[in-house]
């Protein structure tokens, strides 16, 4: 049965949360992880939509440290007030 965008987004959010502090995840990591988790129930487009939903809702943010990642919002070390 096909997964909904919400279900995929929730699973991605948990992947990001679990990896926080250990490994920054890229969009490709999330997509591969989700496809591994749900197999035929998902495709690349739904992964794209789920990432968009996570970022548009503010639950996650894009970051750049020599490459683009998707992380939980946080204050970075370099930031001045």
């Amino acid at each position: 049965m096909a997964k909904t965008v919400e279900e995929v987004a929730e699973a991605m959010y948990n992947m990001i949360k679990d990896a926080t502090g250990l490994k920054k995840l890229k969009a490709t990591d999330l997509t591969k992880g989700i496809i591994e988790m749900f197999g035929d129930e998902v495709d690349k487009q739904i992964c794209k939509d789920a990432i968009k939903q996570l970022v548009n809702s503010g639950r996650c943010v894009y970051t750049y440290f020599g490459g683009s990642f998707i992380e939980l919002p946080h204050k970075e070390g370099a930031a001045n007030d």
């Binding site: 548009n56 894009y62 750049y64 683009s68 992380e71 946080h74 970075e76 370099a78 930031a79």
Partner: peptide, 17 residues
């Protein structure tokens, strides 16, 4: 700065402090 940007986009803003 690696986090600043506009809502929804992952590009277009380069953070500097």
């Amino acid at each position: 700065g690696g986090i600043v940007g506009v809502m929804g986009y992952g590009g277009g803003v380069i953070g500097r402090y």
